[in-house]
Design a protein around this nucleic acid. Structure first.
Lengths: 238, 238
DNA sequence: CGTTAATTTGAAAATTTTCAACGTGCGTGG
DNA sequence: CCACGCACGTTGAAAATTTTCAAATTAACG
């Protein structure tokens, strides 16, 4: 359904790279001895990097789950097929997020993850993790922490009017970027209109109209995939 | 108030209780030595039970997370406040589900869980879990399994038309009951019309109309809170 | 430059919300 | 016991939002 060929707008680059200390996987990496100090800053030393171009997938549903990943740079989407065979965007992932955690329990990945932009991820093989956990006592606890946090249910974007849903998407994305120390006033959405429509459960035309409307009202400044947040607020005009 | 259940020939009781072997917490309980064999059947022996009447809460958002729970009988809803202070139903929980897993990482619960019917849960204190894990080597792995599985993102109910969303709710609920070995053709929804409206993100009137319509079309048979599935299918007229 | 995909725009059709009213069961106070 | 009020659910009709279908416009790419 969605085209593999993705236009790469020249507006903003992908977000990141972020520092290890802003990453959800930080503690686990540290305990695995994958982070070395570099002056005052921590940075990856041993960890394997995976580089993806836009449209490439990090892993696919059903593939054997051999590693977990932390996003360093760029954004990705996770996609899953419904029982009826329709593609559905589950969410997007920004630098600092950890992907593939369900692989521990399921032995396979549960959904596709696809790069929306040029992406760099840190790869941490499960075998490495198992090995290290025999050596480092605290690793098990850190893993439980990481997994436990990931079980927290997220508030759903698909609530309220289209205006509320689009607004929620933009504000939530901004919030996530901010938490990782990235620019949250001006960013690339990463998603095409169609993908955004999928995510907030509406039609592409409706998304387009809503973006234009928010733009016209001065809440945001849109240019293709780039957005600058101006006065956008959750309840602006409900 | 205490007698919310209407006396109707069509009314069903709460689902369950289920056998331990149908429960997501089974393996962990077993390793903790909480399950003893009873003839050919496994059953809880040592585990603490919590009994709730309809409307009572199992735990509340922000409360210190001291235990995880497995639902044995009855249904519950999890509820969370949005940033704007509105209540939102996150999902419902049926026998065999495990609740409170985020407490490991967050030290507190992240949302309210409220009984929709008379409910019985097994309580497993985190302190017990920690103690036992020093004794039983496999317990850590079982815990990781449990947590990992819980991180798998669920497909969202709030997609498509109201008809699709209501249908998806009913079918998903039926599927969950079936997986636990409970009656899935005929059950109590547990949720009021208003709560169902919250969950599928629409208005109470719209839910009411849709239930009546599915009833009229012969896809389901509704009587208050009780539903019998007849010819209901995902795409029936969508 | 010409071609193609992505996005925007318009207008009618369909769905959903809103507002208002009605019905039912049930506990309570008279 | 019965009338009353209340919570909950259902129904109707107009208003608002969203989808659909069609077409125009823009942007990327060779």
């Amino acid at each position: 359904m969605s085209t593999q060929q993705r236009r790469q707008p020249t507006e903003n680059g992908p977000p990141g790279p972020i520092a290890c200390r802003s990453c959800d996987l930080n503690e686990v990496c540290r305990l695995c001895g994958l982070i070395a100090l570099d002056g005052a800053r921590t940075r990856v030393s041993t960890g394997t990097l995976r580089t993806l171009e836009a449209g490439a997938s990090l892993f696919r549903a059903g593939a054997p789950g051999t590693a977990i990943y932390a996003v360093r740079q760029g954004m990705l989407k996770s996609v899953r097929l419904t029982a009826e065979g329709e593609e559905r965007v589950l969410g997007i992932h920004t630098p600092g997020d950890v992907l593939g955690l369900e692989a521990f329990g399921l032995r396979t990945y549960a959904y596709d993850v696809v790069a929306l932009q040029p992406v760099v991820c840190c790869e941490l093989r499960l075998t490495t993790l198992v090995e290290e956990s025999t050596r480092v006592r605290e690793l098990g606890a850190a893993l439980v922490q990481l997994l436990s946090r990931a079980t927290e249910p997220r508030l759903n974007l698909a609530h309220g009017s289209v205006r509320q849903r689009v607004t929620a998407f933009l504000l939530e994305l901004a919030q996530r970027l901010e938490r990782r120390g990235l620019d949250c006033r001006r960013f690339t959405m990463g998603l095409s209109r169609q993908e955004l429509a999928d995510l907030v459960d509406t039609r592409i035309e409706t998304v387009s109209r809503m973006m234009q409307r928010l733009n016209r009202e001065g809440a945001i400044k849109v240019a293709g995939n780039s957005v600058k947040l101006l006065t956008l607020a959750p309840e602006s005009g409900g």
